[in-house]
Structures are given as C-alpha cells and as structure tokens.
C-alpha cells in the first residue's frame, strides 16, 4: 500500500510557499536546526516531501544527503503521506507481557493494514512504538495523541469502528 502511495504522490507538486514560510525562520541557522525544521515540515505536509529536501539543505548549508540521512534515521519522519488517523500500538515490554500481540492483530484485521502502512484513502496509518510510558495501563495504543489503556481485542475493535465512522 505504501508503495502505491509513493507512486501516487511522486508526480504531485507540493505548495512550496508553505515550505518557504517555515524555512525563512531558520535561514543560515546551521545544522542544529535541522531536526526542528524537519519536525515542522512533517507536521505541515504530513510527510517530508522529496522536493523539500534540497531547499532545506540549502537553507541550513548542508548537503542533501545529510538531510536525507537524518530523515531516514528517525522514525518520526516519513517520506510517504500519513493517514488522518495515526494508530500507534505500543509493543513495549509491559504491553508485550500483557498481550500486545492480540491488540496488534486486532488492529491489523480491522484496518487491513500491516505495521508501517497507510490506507489508500489516507484514513489510517498504523505504526507500532517501543513504549509510550503508560505501562501501568497496558496494553496501550495512542490514536492522534489520545492515550487508550487497558485494551482488549473487542475494545480495540469498538474504538476503531468509531474512528472509521467519524
């Protein structure tokens, strides 16, 4: 699914004005601003558009390869578009001990997505995360920054169907 999205968005032109307004704040700031710039770009476009990499590199006096290296290192950044709803299932140790595998398979079955994939209608992105620090309420998932704890498969399915509707 992700790959078809990549192809679908490859030809699309992005609105560079929005990028410009982010970059203007960081002009010639140097390398230490890179992660902050990328975080803003990720929020603005829901991804790091390929076309943004060279302008970012120019602004911060870096090589495009250095920018690309940082983008691909940190899981927060993605080169492909993300869904409107990001489902993050925790697979930390406590969640694992408390049955995170069942939560993850329920999400996979309900959304028909595998870990790291985005639905073609851009509704859902499904990710797993190492730990969100809400272990006492394990197993946990986070949907668009809302923490949902003490999950079991039926509860997950119910929650997801609500998001499916709304």
């Amino acid at each position: 699914m992700t790959s078809s999205l990549e192809i679908a968005t490859a030809g699309q032109k992005i609105d560079l004005n929005r990028l410009e307004s982010i970059l203007s704040k960081y002009y010639k700031r140097g390398r230490d601003a890179l992660i902050s710039v990328l975080q803003e770009v990720q929020v603005e476009y829901g991804r790091i558009p390929q076309e943004s990499i060279e302008p970012i590199a120019d602004t911060l006096n870096l090589f495009p390869s250095e920018v690309y290296g940082v983008v691909t290192f940190y899981p927060q950044f993605s080169l492909t578009p993300q869904g409107k709803c990001t489902i993050q299932a925790c697979r930390g140790t406590t969640c694992h001990v408390k049955g995170a595998d069942k939560i993850i398979s329920t999400i996979e079955n309900t959304t028909k997505l595998k870990e790291g994939e985005t639905s073609s209608d851009l509704k859902f992105t499904f990710k797993t995360v190492t730990c969100v620090g809400t272990c006492a309420l394990a197993p946990v998932m986070v949907i668009n920054n809302k923490f949902l704890g003490k999950l079991y498969p039926k509860k997950v399915a119910d929650i997801l169907s609500q998001y499916e509707k709304g």
Binding site: A33, S36, Q39
Partner: peptide
C-alpha cells in the same frame, strides 16, 4: 524534542541528535 529512537537515550547519541545529526 527528539524524533523517536531508543538509542538517543545514550548520552553521546543525544549530543549528535541535538547537533542535528543521526
């Protein structure tokens, strides 16, 4: 704000991350 990796809890990796590197 970090960008989500476990190894960035290692103290020298933090230095790299704050400087804007991998």
């Amino acid at each position: 704000e970090g960008a989500g990796t476990y190894v960035c809890g290692e103290e020298t990796a933090i230095l790299e991350a704050i400087e804007g590197r991998r």
